[in-house]
Amino acid sequence: MTPVLETLPGGLRLLLDPDPQAQTVAAGCFVTVGARDEAPGEMGVSHFLEHLMFKGSTRVGAAELNERLDDLGGYSNAFTGEEMTVYHLAALPERCGEVFGTLSELLRPALRPGDIHTERGVILEEIAMYAEQPVTQVMEALHSTYWGRHPLGQSVLGTPKRCRAWTWPASERT
């Protein structure tokens, strides 16, 4: 079958590639925002927001969202890069409607103050973990040297200092 590209009224583009013999259904949301879109004072915000997406929406809390992801019996994850942030899920074909519903809920983060505080700790641990890996140190040094002050010369993860400084309007209201 030939892949089909659909554009919804709100501008969201869907690429559908049906395979009747597939053992799984996969869905991904490719958000065309990454490190290259961040000013120096915003370094790491795309990555921070990626983490916050898994903390639930205003309708579904983090525990329920993650329970839904687990119940699908497949795989879910996300990553942030220089060019985009990607959220992806896979499950059995008979769970297709639930996959899309859960992905839709994931993409409506509540940005609760407590979640921001908790996730800040997780991200600080992630930054520290990667900082200890020689290959990461080399790649970040190469990017910084080649790109200089351009956003592509910055760390996708951000820095501990930037991570500690993040606030969002939702966290400032309470």
Results as ranks from 00 to 15, higher is better:
42 E>G: 08
134 P>R: 14
51 H>M: 07
129 M>C: 04
5 L>Q: 12
69 L>K: 00
133 Q>G: 05
40 P>Y: 02
131 A>S: 13
38 E>H: 04
154 Q>V: 00
87 Y>A: 06
21 Q>Y: 06
47 H>F: 00
93 P>F: 05
61 G>C: 01
52 L>Y: 07
98 E>P: 01
157 L>T: 10
66 N>Y: 01
48 F>G: 09
28 G>I: 01
131 A>G: 15
102 T>Y: 00
170 A>R: 11
159 T>Y: 02
109 P>F: 05
79 F>M: 05
111 L>Y: 14
7 T>R: 10
157 L>G: 07
100 F>L: 15
119 E>I: 04
90 A>T: 12
174 T>D: 15
143 H>C: 04
48 F>V: 11
119 E>V: 06
98 E>M: 00
95 R>F: 01
141 A>E: 15
128 A>I: 04
9 P>W: 00
29 C>T: 05
11 G>N: 13
14 L>K: 10
71 D>T: 04
59 R>G: 07
83 E>S: 00
13 R>H: 04
65 L>G: 10
11 G>V: 05
101 G>C: 01
62 A>E: 13
46 S>N: 07
84 M>C: 02
122 V>D: 11
58 T>Q: 14
71 D>G: 03
136 T>M: 09
172 E>V: 09
136 T>S: 14
142 L>W: 04
9 P>T: 11
100 F>E: 12
146 Y>C: 03
100 F>W: 11
6 E>C: 01
72 L>N: 09
35 A>K: 00
14 L>S: 07
72 L>Y: 01
115 D>L: 02
54 F>L: 08
62 A>R: 09
151 P>L: 02
71 D>E: 08
103 L>I: 09
160 P>F: 03
95 R>K: 06
120 R>Y: 04
19 D>T: 08
54 F>Q: 12
55 K>P: 06
125 E>Q: 14
146 Y>H: 03
131 A>I: 10
121 G>N: 13
20 P>G: 08
114 G>E: 15
8 L>G: 03
103 L>W: 06
104 S>A: 12
73 G>R: 03
139 M>Q: 12
35 A>G: 07
34 G>W: 00
129 M>Y: 14
132 E>G: 15
3 P>S: 13
68 R>K: 06
45 V>P: 05
29 C>Y: 01
107 L>D: 12
118 T>L: 13
162 R>D: 12
85 T>Y: 02
47 H>M: 07
158 G>Q: 09
31 V>L: 03
146 Y>I: 13
49 L>K: 06
134 P>K: 14
44 G>A: 08
21 Q>K: 07
133 Q>K: 14
98 E>D: 09
90 A>V: 09
164 R>Y: 01
80 T>C: 01
6 E>R: 10
98 E>R: 10
170 A>W: 03
17 D>Q: 11
122 V>E: 13
50 E>P: 09
145 T>H: 06
5 L>S: 11
110 A>R: 14
40 P>F: 01
71 D>I: 00
40 P>C: 05
153 G>I: 07
130 Y>H: 09
113 P>N: 13
111 L>K: 09
85 T>L: 03
9 P>Y: 03
16 L>H: 09
159 T>N: 11
140 E>K: 05
96 C>R: 14
71 D>K: 03
125 E>R: 11
166 W>P: 03
86 V>G: 02
